[in-house]
């Protein structure tokens, strides 16, 4: 299937969803859920909250879908809703702590118990470092690293100038470089 055909099918699904077709909207949810939940998880650092926020994102998208215009990609429009929904909740919650039970289900079962503990700690430190960034820098970083958006797209999603995207990303990556010095050094021999 060509890219053009994929886009045409997607625009049909979006149009059907705009007309109130719940089944078509379910298809949109299936397509974009992974991206949305991943971005939200990196913004809040809490897997359960990320799923709730992803659900909230899609519910808001359903409500506001009639006002969506296909000039901008649907993914970017969803990310904008996701970022807003997540920070609405985070501002209320303030404190965000990683839940220990989330890390019980570790991805790679072939690792030794010590390696699993180390991997969990490392993942925890990375996520904690991301979550500790100021909101403005965090959303730019997450949209770039996990959302895969270009600078121009980030500027459109967050409604900020391109120069601000660059400066916030500079700040975020430099802060992470300082906070994750140990992890970066460990990674260096693997990279070299």
């Amino acid at each position: 299937m060509t890219q053009l055909q994929v886009e045409e099918i997607e625009s049909t699904i979006i149009e059907q969803s705009q007309n109130g077709d719940r089944h078509a909207f379910g298809e949109l949810v299936r397509r974009y859920y992974s991206g949305v939940v991943h971005v939200v998880y990196r913004l809040c650092g809490d897997a359960a909250l990320a799923e709730d926020m992803a659900q909230e994102t899609f519910l808001r998208a359903w409500i506001h879908l009639p006002s969506y215009h296909p000039q901008s990609p649907f993914r970017n429009w969803l990310y904008r809703i996701a970022v807003n929904a997540t920070f609405d909740v985070l501002r209320k919650q303030k404190a965000t702590e990683l839940e220990e039970e989330e890390w019980q289900q570790i991805r790679d079962s072939s690792l030794s118990p010590e390696a699993i503990v180390l991997a969990r700690e490392k993942a925890g430190r990375i996520q904690q470092a991301i979550v500790s960034l100021p909101e403005a820098a965090r959303n730019v970083l997450v949209l770039r690293e996990y959302g895969g958006l270009s600078y121009q797209e980030i500027a459109a999603v967050l409604d900020i100038p391109l120069g601000t995207v660059m400066s916030r990303l500079n700040y975020a990556r430099n802060r992470l470089r300082e906070m994750l010095q140990e992890e970066v050094k460990q990674q260096e021999p693997e990279y070299a």
Binding site: S34, V37, H38, Y41, R42, A47, A50, E51, E102, W103, Q105, R107, K122, A123, I126, Q127, I130, L141, E145, Y146, R173, N174, L176, R177, L180, E183, V184, Q187, E188, Y191
Partner: peptide, 17 residues
């Protein structure tokens, strides 16, 4: 170092959803 930070972030898999 910036490249390593970026790769470190991307390599960190999210929990199962």
């Amino acid at each position: 170092e910036l490249r390593l930070v970026s790769e470190l972030l991307k390599a960190d898999a999210p929990p199962p959803f």
